[in-house]
Amino acid sequence: MDPQALENDALAAVATAASTDEIERVRVEYLGRKSELKLALREVRDRETGTALNALRERLEGAIDGREAELARAELDRQLTEDVVDVTLPGEEFQLGTLHPTTLTRRIIEDAFLGLGYEVIDDREVETVHYNFDQLAFAPTHPSRSHRDTFFVDDERLLRTETSPSQIHVMEAKQPPIYMVSLGRVYRRDEITATRFPIFHQFEGLAVDRSLTLADLKGTLLHVMRALFGEQRQVRFRTHFFPFTEPSMEPDVSCPICDMRGCRTCKFTGWIELGGSGMVDPEVLTNVGIEPEEWTGFAFGCGIERSAQLRHGISEIRPFWENDLRTLRQF
């Protein structure tokens, strides 16, 4: 046997093998049990020849393995190019639910306040006249005390008309500093219309600390409005009146629908009135045993549905309570 000729023949055969079947036949021919090389190895008697033939065997094995891997990969590639899926077909469907827009908005508000270091409060909805009106310094003649405006269960018990009784509960429970936001359902005796429902959700922030200012209130509201409606929003204030704050102001936010270019939502004024705010009235602080010369505070509140309406461009209140999946599945 001429090892050099054998190697040349074998490598030529490897190079010309065109499929994994062919390379397998080459392997059998040159390295199989009955191959010339195997027979020669079996008959080797001297060390030098043995070493040379084993080296040859290893070279041939390497060449065959290498070629086989190449061919196998080429065959796989050919096969895969034929295994095609229409990627535009829909995937297997998993049913997903959705959070209600009121919850989505509630979370944005909660997170904005958490970031400012506020606690989140979830408080009772059936209240007493004491907490809903008296402690909040509502005048005895304030229209909200009327049975026309408020749902009463009896002369003492009523459905809270705003989240503000939470202010009293929290201030009674602990001394300042207090930073909290209360969120939940409130009730007003309004007829049901396209834009009003007698049950809705409110959020109300309260801060009581040393030397809080009206400027701090403005800055805090700006932060929350931007969290709700985008970083470009502006906020302005107008003088107003609420029994439990003094001074009291209504904040306006620049219209997130038209970005102040003027639209139906903002009645072409560029501004949208949103809730109420003010510095906590000293009478309210005194009512809960907090000294108003030492501590000042601010509070502000706003409807959650109303915020959600502005976030999502919902012009009516109806979609929030009719719970139609065609609506809900958009969120």
């Binding site: 606690e119 800055g219 805090t220």
Partner: peptide, 21 residues
């Protein structure tokens, strides 16, 4: 009113976190 600046309270003893519930 329009001249009042927008500021934030100086933070102290403020611990914002959700309750367990």
């Amino acid at each position: 009113l329009a001249d009042v600046p927008f500021t934030l309270p100086v933070r102290r003893e403020m611990m914002g976190r959700l309750s367990r519930f």
